[in-house]
Design a binder for these strands. Structure first.
Lengths: 239, 239
DNA sequence: GGATTTTTGTAACGCAATGTTGCGGCGGCC
DNA sequence: GGCCGCCGCAACATTGCGTTACAAAAATCC
């Protein structure tokens, strides 16, 4: 995502479409619009998008159905717009695979906030279509391959990590040399918020250190920042 | 399906019948209704329908029985409506030949979404997945040929897979390096929705691993993503 | 068309991964 | 130096998954 994120706004109401498009453009996004499902599919076929803002009620095939179709073969993030008063829509929308939802009428700022949150969560995970991230991370001779979900040590030995440990390390590799709070790490690895006295990250990290630190008593790769979180100290080469 | 799809709603509760009929009509479907199995059979004899929405509890012959009769000599898609609670879940799991189901009370929008999803699946080519040209998949020396429904190992030995195992592997080959949820896999391989505690994908996958993984205890080709689904870790060359 | 074989789905059990809790230690602050 | 709060980690609880055994359904064979 070297250029600014590309967003597709799908709504049959021209006024809303234009309003949202202008607003998002003003905030630095590239925006295209579509009035219905057919136009949406056409747009998706032509360009690469990072996110779709999708109205629930559309002429022809409706938003839920479209959302399901998108999910069938891509991970393109979707934010659903729903008419007000239908609480259950939230459940349905999320069930159908939307990443977030917003009730109409909405404050454009709130839409912006959710777009940012969803894009951040989607993280480096790229746009539309099949070839999902073929990236590999290297640091200090270590090799982390997200697609294979494998970690190899400098002497090229496969280090057995559990899924959670792997996700945690991957989150650090994607954000090296930055302090990451427990909140952020939870969001990045589990996609969830912290509950009051949540220590799960601490424990998971402890387990991870045991497997990758030369001396887990004196961690060098992932250091603790008291009161702040943790920081990955190595240079990461991304390819 | 050049004209709008034609739907038959079968429910003994007049209120629900009318509500659903009005809602679907408003969304562009042609709708007829029937209050019981006899009326349903009569309606089916008179017109062409694209889908039946069928209540489980009916006076006289019940929905399950009717559903089986329909299945006996047609592929007409069926969505079952079930009253929540009772033993219905069990019955659904055991006997449903329906394409999808929905628990009452339901949100009409959700019914609409499911109708669209089922119609889409029914409309797609009968052999699930993709239309499938003469494509062949290669990964790690393996060769998967959807047209012949054959899998050959790196040493060119024909590996006997059952139909279901083959479909599952083909689904992965078409979506490599992406986490696929059990829901998605069911949709891709069986074209159906999951029932409450559906573990069929797990079992099928276990059987598949036994045949294609060097060490099924430590799967490398298809890995588990706890809480997420499964991921095919190999590069796939498609030709 | 019925019997046999093969495939698929369901249930149950055990294990491994993850989350939670609590204690002890260490560091920072006054 | 003593107190307080944050963090590491062991121990326990919970959850999700792999696997097996069995049952139902489908395919195959006479």
């Amino acid at each position: 995502m070297s250029r600014s994120p590309h967003i597709l706004v799908v709504d049959d109401d021209r006024e809303i479409r234009d309003l949202v498009a202008r607003f998002l453009t003003k905030h630095g996004y590239r925006v295209d619009t579509a009035a219905d499902g057919r136009a949406m599919m056409q747009a998706l076929g032509q360009g690469r998008f990072d996110l779709v803002v999708l109205d629930l009620m559309l002429p022809g095939e409706d938003g839920l159905s479209l959302c399901r179709r998108l999910r069938a073969d891509s991970t393109l993030p979707v934010i659903m717009l729903t008419a007000i008063g239908e609480e259950t829509d939230r459940i349905i929308g999320l069930e159908m695979g939307a990443d977030d939802y917003l009730a109409k009428p909405f404050n454009p700022r709130e839409l912006l906030a959710r777009i940012k949150a969803v894009l951040r969560r989607a993280g480096a995970a790229p746009g539309h279509g099949e070839p999902a991230a073929n990236e590999v991370f290297r640091f200090d001779g270590w090799r982390l391959d997200p697609a294979r979900r494998e970690l190899r040590s400098p002497d090229d030995v496969l280090v057995p990590l559990t899924g959670g440990e792997f996700d945690l390390l991957a989150a650090f590799a994607r954000h090296p040399k930055r302090v990451l709070s427990r909140e952020q790490l939870l969001d990045l690895t589990r996609g969830r918020a912290a509950v009051p006295f949540d220590r799960s990250i601490d424990v998971q990290l402890s387990r991870l250190r045991r497997k990758i630190e030369a001396d887990p008593r004196e961690p060098a790769m992932i250091k603790t920042v008291r009161g702040g979180g943790y920081i990955f100290t190595r240079d990461v080469e991304r390819r």
